[in-house]
Nucleic acid binder design. Structure first.
Length: 812
RNA sequence: GGGCGUAUAGCUCAGUUGGUAGAGCUCCUGCCUUACAAGCAGGCGGUCACAGGUUCGAGUCCUGUUGCGCCCACCA
């Protein structure tokens, strides 16, 4: 009896073995073609959850497959450990705000804390069997990444794609930084639609409707629709707000006639429409919101210094008192908020660095067509987003822990002073420029205090991987990279920004293929929120309970791009498959103790069932390869399961047992036994290799135990993905139509026994197969195995018009 | 409001180019058959969301409707 497979011991053992023997190391000098994967660097912002395991495993299976296809796989692993998410993690952990401590101290704290998390993350990735080359590990806050990121900044500036401008920007008042369009999402809020009375120059009232009465001091015009007959005669007239400010009534198509009163105040700035009007009609700007989110410059003195929300309540009271508030209607409306804080976004003019993306939209769309998207429909999300872009990419953030904007300014002239590339990386707060402008001393220089958007760095992962700008052998091999795996929620950020940077630096696409994975949902249609995440199993618990191979199995059940729910049952099925593999292989090898692995049998000389099982695995391997080449890991895996579990275990093993146990029962039995042994040895070898990308631990265990001595390859993961298992065969129709009938016969025998309460192992007297002469000829080669699996004393063939079966039990 | 995806057994899903509806789980009945009870054998269970159309033939192709999910727009 064979021992049990203990995943808990085997998995860490092999993980250690792979690391120690550098099984997944990229061979820089290899002749083999490179296959490079632009692995997503996970954000170091807390815990890894099942969603990470899900999408990384899917990509990882492809890495293993490509390696077995003969590629020299470049599979690095990085960590995105700077930026706001990390800052917030650190602030929470030390229970202090970044703004409350010296910049240098905060940055050092961040570095220490992220280092701890990086190690934790790394351990978890290794425990799921990620086959990354850890010698290629990078972190986006390292000196090296900062250097590349600042180099990108300098180059884009020199090329004129990067500009600093004082312009209205999307602004979050809680973390006090500008943000990018991609970081904005919608959120529903309870609010009021207020009707406020303005006074037209002729003394008549004009009612305008607004949800943001606190912006009244910033009103710079009133707009009506040019088609709105109620107001056409007023266009061009002056109107006075309840606060005494006089503005002009103007017309624009963007005003909805039905909404509110049809007259709207334009404030600097309430929303993007205001921005558009100010720009289009060159209106005056009155800024009343500070970067802290407080009101300034209001003629109502009590408002000044209040937060926007408080000021809104106050001004409503004031307007009521003044008799200017006609009506307030409670509504629910959606407001743009910053994704990280959930707070409504303000539009505030600040000096920011922008990458000019709006002018390159066409190019961005063109490049999308040069990339293969898997699944194809994900390209639409990208295209739609690009087409609707309204803002240039603002890359400066008024934060602390990140890659510094590598720039200083002259206090005298305001001119921008940039470092030389050789000085990078720099932090302009601590470093001083080497070359000062004429007539300047160090005292005349002030640093840019901003850091770069994290995406500004993570969008150059191909450049970071390729040692861009260095005399490095990787530089030529990696650009463009072969594959970008990522989830669909970051198409508009990571995918887009990477495509932008690649275009601006290289006039090229960053990678040839992108495979987009889905999300793990809490329930159907419910995202995993923070509160829900606490109710779910952690990856560690999943691995502990079911094994890494089983969890990987679950992750590969999904179709590419599709969201799934966490199904414990599916992980259990993975565990079952692992056990089944162990049992089947162990069993087979119990019957191979007297088989010399050097013994080969020509395909023509094999028994029919043995030919069939080899033809079937050949077919399965081809299908798996086709699917994996399209990144359809799920279909490939179910091909395997069908073959292994159904054909190999349920039928083939049962068919050959008797032939192996009791060869003396059959004519020329020893040869027939050898035929089965050979077929077992060959097909199990392929079985192990075909499923190795999915279940790397159990397959390594089995390979090492049974095949390594023969093949002399250090790890199953360095063997070839088996696609040429047997020589090409012709005229295999008879084998396949024969086995179809044989399976039908076996099923009928089993049913006969079950129906008649005969145990399957019990003998019966006779199996009678009636059919046409030609069909009988096709079935006859399987006679021994039919007899064996049926446990029948005899198999009788009778000519007949139609296929029919008869059975005789033993009469006692 | 626009786009994309999706609707198949009680549950989770597969169904490649149109050709007799599949798997796993659940449930029921047998079986510790000399690999495996985390197993084996057998069974119950489906108007393939709805309505039209093309076709000898539609789960599959076309049109429309509805439900669900996602992305985007709207945000005065």
């Amino acid at each position: 009896m064979n021992t049990k497979y203990e995943a808990k011991e085997a998995e860490p053992k092999w993980q250690k073995f792979w690391l120690e023997n550098e099984i997944y190391k990229y061979q820089i000098d290899s002749e083999k073609p490179t296959y490079s994967i632009d692995t997503p660097p996970p954000t170091v912002s807390g815990k890894i959850h099942v969603g990470h395991i899900f999408s990384y495993t899917q990509a990882e299976v492809i890495a293993r497959f490509k390696r077995m296809q003969g590629f020299n796989v470049f599979y690095p692993f990085g960590f995105d450990d700077n930026g706001l998410p990390t800052e917030r993690l650190v602030e929470k952990e030390i229970n202090r705000k970044a703004s409350e401590m010296p910049r240098k101290e905060f940055i050092e704290t961040c570095l220490n804390i992220t280092e701890k998390y990086r190690q934790e993350f790394k351990g978890l990735w290794q425990s799921i069997g990620i086959s990354a080359d850890w010698s290629l590990e990078y972190s986006t806050i390292s000196d090296y990444s900062r250097k590349i990121s600042q180099k990108s900044f300098l180059e884009l500036y020199k090329k004129g794609f990067l500009v600093k401008k004082n312009a209205p920007a999307l602004w979050d008042i809680e973390v006090k930084t500008s943000v990018a369009q991609a970081e904005i999402e919608d959120k529903e809020f309870d609010s009021f639609f207020h009707d406020i009375k303005f006074t037209i120059e002729n003394g008549d009232d004009l009612i305008i409707a607004t949800t943001r009465p606190e912006l009244l001091p910033a009103c710079t015009a009133v707009f009506v629709n040019p088609e709105d007959s109620r107001y056409t005669h007023l266009i061009g007239k002056k109107v006075t707000t309840p606060l005494g400010k006089t503005v002009t009534i103007m017309s624009d198509e963007k005003v909805s006639i039905e909404k509110g009163s049809g007259a709207v105040m334009c404030c600097t700035y309430g929303d993007e429409t205001d921005l558009y009007w100010v720009k289009t009609y060159k209106l005056e700007e009155t800024i009343i919101i500070t970067p802290d989110g407080k009101i300034k410059n209001s003629p109502i003195e009590e408002m000044n210094g209040l937060y926007v929300n408080k000021a809104r309540v106050l001004i409503v009271e004031k307007l009521k008192e003044m008799g200017a508030l006609i009506n307030s209607k409670a509504i629910v409306h959606s407001v743009k908020v910053y994704e990280r804080t959930g707070r409504p976004i303000e539009i505030i003019p600040v000096s920011q660095w922008f990458i000019k993306t709006l002018e390159m939209k066409d190019k961005l769309l063109e490049n999308a067509d040069k990339i293969n998207w898997y699944p194809e429909y994900m390209k639409k999300r990208y295209v739609e987003w690009v087409e609707n872009l309204k803002w240039d990419w603002c890359i400066s953030r008024q934060r602390f822990f990140g890659v510094s904007v590598p720039a200083w300014y002259s206090k005298k002239t305001g001119e921008i002073i940039l470092p030389d590339e050789s000085e990078l990386p720099i932090d302009p707060v601590f470093d001083k420029p080497k070359n000062l402008p004429e007539g300047h001393t160090i005292e005349d220089i002030e640093p840019d205090l901003d850091v770069l958007d994290t995406w500004a760095t993570s969008s150059i992962t191909p450049q970071i991987n390729a040692h861009w700008g260095e005399e490095h052998p990787l530089a030529k091999k990696l650009i463009p990279m072969d594959l970008r795996p990522q989830a669909h929620d970051i198409i508009r950020t990571w995918a887009l920004y990477t495509i932008i940077k690649s275009e601006l630096h290289f006039n090229d696409i960053p990678w040839k293929n992108t495979m987009i994975s889905g999300h793990v949902l809490f329930k159907k249609g419910e995202k995993i929120s923070k509160s829900k995440a606490q109710k779910m199993m952690t990856p560690e618990e999943m691995i502990d309970k079911f094994s890494a191979d089983a969890v990987r199995f679950w992750a590969c059940r999904a179709s590419l791009g599709k969201d799934i729910q966490l199904e414990e049952n599916e992980i259990k099925n993975g565990l079952k498959l692992v056990t089944k593999l162990w049992n089947a292989v162990s069993f087979a090898f119990m019957n191979l103790t007297d088989y010399d692995v050097k013994t080969k049998v020509n395909f023509e000389d094999l028994e029919s069932s043995d030919k069939w099982i080899l033809l079937r695995i050949q077919e399965t391997a081809k299908k798996m390869e086709e699917n994996l080449n399209k990144f359809e890991f799920g279909s490939a895996m179910s091909e395997f399961e069908k073959y292994f579990w159904h054909d190999f275990c349920d039928f083939y093993l049962e068919m050959v047992k008797d032939r192996i146990y009791k060869p003396e029962k059959y004519e020329n039995g020893q040869n027939k036994k050898l035929s089965a042994q050979y077929a077992l040895y060959v097909s199990l070898n392929s079985i192990i290799k075909l499923i190795a990308p999915y279940l790397p631990h159990i397959t390594e265990e089995l390979y090492q135990k049974y095949y390594k001595d023969d093949e002399k390859i250090i790890s199953v993961h360095l063997t070839k993905f088996p696609v040429d298992i047997i020589p090409a065969q012709e005229n295999t129709e008879n084998i396949f139509s024969g086995i179809t009938k044989v399976i039908e016969i076996i099923e009928a025998v089993r049913k006969f026994k079950t129906d008649n309460k005969i145990r399957l192992g019990e003998e019966i007297e006779k199996v009678i197969i009636k059919s046409s002469a030609s069909e009988l000829e096709i079935i006859k080669p399987f006679q021994d195995d039919i007899q064996g699996v049926s446990r029948t004393r005899s198999v009788v063939f009778e000519p007949a018009e139609n296929f029919e079966l008869d059975f005789e039990a033993i009469v006692v």
